[in-house]
Simulated assay, not measured.
Amino acid sequence: MTRVESTLLSIALAGVVTLAAYTDVLLVGAVIVITQIMVAAAPTPADASGRPVAAPRFGAAAIAGLIATGVTLYPQVLLGADGTQAGSVGSVESGVFAGLVPAVAAGVIVALVSQMLRKDGRKSLVLTTGYAVTLCVFAALAIGWIGAAQSVGGAPVVAVAAIALAAALLVWLLPFDRVVIGSFAVAAGGVGGALAAPYLDDGSGMTWAFGALAGVGVALFSILGQVMGQSWSSGRRHASGGWGFPGALSLALSAPIVFVASQFVGVSFTLS
């Protein structure tokens, strides 16, 4: 497998998320669920000798992702009954990472139950449990794109992030020294964000400086997603058992940066 398939998938997913953000946030949620399923379908881990280890993981990561997406789209589910104090605690704004904790907690429970149901002697218990829990976190993180679509900046912020991601990953494909190309790829993400932000601004206050900072962050973590996804199963030559995993992981790892950036729309960035 080459990096081309996973890169094109990441760019395609970011593009579809952008189109969905300009249409309806529920469509953004649908794309994110697809991304989370791809993360949940990660290759099996490998032991120290490079041999694959049976690790129940799909159910836990999928449950974590679905709960995170559901709570992010409908945060009112965290509200308590009328007349109770839970309402003030559970009251959250749309797009806040309110679903992360319950999602990961549910994923951990499913992961532990899955381990209890294993009938193979539970070999590499720590490795397989940690693997499943990590996938739960990755799947849940993808909701950052939903939060950004619901923020003050809305769809334009998502579009700027998608452009930065695409610029960075296209440069990352170039066949040169990885450190050098990585530096150029991060810079390309910053330039792409800086150029796109003023052009796409709809009055929310996106400046070139905002686009540059957001672009650099998105570029860095989208590249990290590619690297981690392609070398996830340590010791195996065919480390990326499915090109969907690294492609989806780029979107998942960059999601928190997109969400945080969306909270700074309109903030003045000055150099002193």
Rank of each mutant, 00 (worst) to 15 (best):
residue 99 G to N: 08
residue 137 V to W: 11
residue 141 L to Q: 09
residue 178 R to Q: 12
residue 150 Q to A: 09
residue 157 V to Q: 05
residue 155 A to G: 06
residue 129 T to N: 07
residue 160 V to Y: 02
residue 102 P to D: 08
residue 179 V to N: 05
residue 113 V to S: 14
residue 143 I to C: 02
residue 154 G to D: 13
residue 108 V to D: 13
residue 165 L to T: 10
residue 103 A to Q: 06
residue 189 G to V: 02
residue 107 G to S: 14
residue 115 Q to M: 14
residue 121 G to S: 09
residue 131 Y to H: 12
residue 101 V to F: 13
residue 187 A to Y: 02
residue 169 L to K: 12
residue 104 V to W: 12
residue 147 G to E: 01
residue 144 G to R: 02
residue 165 L to Q: 14
residue 177 D to V: 00
residue 168 A to T: 07
residue 116 M to S: 15
residue 166 A to M: 06
residue 165 L to S: 15
residue 101 V to W: 04
residue 155 A to E: 11
residue 127 L to M: 05
residue 135 L to T: 10
residue 152 V to S: 13
residue 155 A to V: 09
residue 131 Y to T: 04
residue 119 K to Q: 15
residue 163 I to K: 07
residue 150 Q to N: 09
residue 107 G to D: 12
residue 167 A to H: 01
residue 109 I to P: 13
residue 130 G to S: 10
residue 159 A to M: 04
residue 122 R to Q: 13
residue 110 V to Q: 09
residue 115 Q to D: 12
residue 154 G to L: 10
residue 179 V to A: 11
residue 176 F to N: 10
residue 102 P to I: 01
residue 106 A to S: 15
residue 131 Y to E: 01
residue 106 A to P: 05
residue 158 V to I: 11
residue 183 S to H: 02
residue 105 A to S: 15
residue 184 F to V: 08
residue 136 C to T: 15
residue 118 R to F: 08
residue 108 V to W: 10
residue 161 A to N: 11
residue 117 L to K: 13
residue 105 A to I: 15
residue 137 V to T: 15
residue 170 L to N: 03
residue 132 A to N: 03
residue 134 T to V: 13
residue 133 V to D: 09
residue 137 V to M: 13
residue 162 A to H: 08
residue 106 A to R: 04
residue 99 G to H: 09
residue 188 A to N: 01
residue 101 V to R: 02
residue 183 S to R: 03
residue 156 P to V: 10
residue 164 A to M: 05
residue 174 L to R: 10
residue 108 V to H: 10
residue 160 V to H: 05
residue 136 C to Y: 11
residue 161 A to D: 10
residue 170 L to D: 00
residue 189 G to T: 02
residue 179 V to P: 00
residue 149 A to S: 14
residue 125 L to I: 10
residue 181 I to R: 03
residue 166 A to P: 06
residue 151 S to P: 02
residue 146 I to W: 10
residue 190 G to D: 02
residue 161 A to L: 06
residue 190 G to Q: 04
residue 171 V to H: 02
residue 157 V to R: 01
residue 178 R to H: 07
residue 170 L to T: 06
residue 183 S to M: 11
residue 123 K to C: 05
residue 145 W to K: 03
residue 188 A to L: 04
residue 123 K to P: 09
residue 155 A to C: 09
residue 170 L to A: 03
residue 147 G to S: 01
residue 111 A to G: 14
residue 141 L to V: 06
residue 172 W to M: 08
residue 165 L to W: 00
residue 118 R to T: 03
residue 137 V to L: 15
residue 148 A to M: 04
residue 115 Q to S: 14
residue 121 G to V: 12
residue 139 A to Y: 05
residue 100 L to T: 01
residue 143 I to T: 14
residue 108 V to R: 07
